[in-house]
Design a protein around this nucleic acid. Structure first.
Length: 297
DNA sequence: AAGTGAACCTGAAGGC
DNA sequence: TGCCTTCAGGTTCACT
């Protein structure tokens, strides 16, 4: 579910509450999510102060003073919400856009904030594809689950030249290459579809065909790199996309889904000015792809 | 090696 | 109303 923009939105929502907070107690309400919780999970993080919250690709990281790094993946349906502790509640505070599903509250972090308030940060995940890991501050980027991740599509690292190199020689379709977290880390099904539409490239095109000869330039790889960076930046600015069960950390909704050009728009008109195409859906490696066959080549 | 598809799990939505 | 099928933002693993 959550792709990079949604995870970044969650990070920004949790940051004001969690940074500088003390984790007083942790409840794990079942022995596992996608994987069993790490050994002594509760003991290793209880009593620690959260120095900072970070993100790598679709992973959230909580860096604990003098302790481990808590690494969290939201899977398809994971979300966090924050509740003030009983006694601090004000009427109407729980007017969330969606009724609470406490049956899938799997982890509850009881924290004391910097302001001396008590709060609960609750991880909810109906499908349980999410997971939590612990690593060490010095080496967390080399954790087996994160070691192979590719370049972040944020910032200016990903440019046409790099993308050209990453895709050179690959015969897999662009759709699959963009989803490959070992190449670019953080894109998912929605933003890959959207980036390909923005770049005017077919999701079925072999990835290697946008590459320049080594040392040369390719207009297609320039366009695609820019499209990827733009769509991710735009989605973060909009607070991510809210579909089905996804809600931001503060209970509010992101609104990028109203900006979709192709995703979930099968049968509707292409939004590119001057294009009269109709958005098609196809299945690639078991997942839906949405694109305009008229203007995406 | 690279690429494709199944598996993991639950809930929502649509068809009959 | 109820039952059945299909689909969903992700990742790993097994197989060709």
């Amino acid at each position: 579910m959550p792709e990079l923009p949604e995870v970044e939105t969650v990070r920004r929502g949790l940051q004001p509450v969690l940074e500088g907070s003390i984790i007083e107690h942790v409840e794990t309400r079942r022995p596992d999510l996608r994987y069993p919780f790490p050994e002594k999970f509760v003991d290793r993080i209880s009593g620690r102060r959260i120095a900072s919250l970070g993100r790598r690709a679709k992973y959230l990281t909580a860096h604990l003073d003098g302790g481990p790094v808590l690494i969290c993946h939201l899977g398809m349906s994971g979300s966090f919400r924050v509740e003030a502790s009983a006694g601090d509640r004000t009427p109407g505070e729980f007017h969330h856009p969606r009724s609470k599903d406490t049956a899938h509250d799997h982890v509850v972090f009881h924290v004391a904030t910097q302001d001396g308030e008590k709060a609960q940060v609750i991880f909810n995940d109906p499908r349980r594809f999410g997971f939590m890991l612990l690593s060490e501050e010095a080496t967390w980027r080399e954790h087996p689950m994160l070691a192979g991740l590719g370049v972040e599509p944020t910032g200016n690292t990903l440019d046409g030249d790099l993308l050209s190199d990453l895709f050179r020689g690959r015969t897999a379709p662009l759709k699959a290459a963009l989803l490959d977290q070992r190449l670019i880390a953080g894109l998912g099904n929605i933003y890959v579809c959207e980036a390909l539409w923005r770049a005017g490239l077919s999701p079925r095109r072999a990835a290697g065909t946008i590459s320049a000869k080594p040392g040369g330039r390719s207009a297609r790889s320039d366009r695609l790199a820019q499209a990827v960076r733009d769509v991710i930046a735009d989605a973060i600015a909009a607070g991510g996309s809210s579909l089905r069960d996804y809600v931001q950390a503060d209970g509010s909704l992101g609104y990028f889904q109203h900006s979709f050009s192709v995703y979930d728009r099968e049968g509707q008109a292409c939004k590119r000015p001057g294009c009269s195409g109709i958005v098609q859906r196809l299945v690639q490696s078991g997942r839906s792809t949405f694109y305009c066959p008229t203007c995406q080549r």
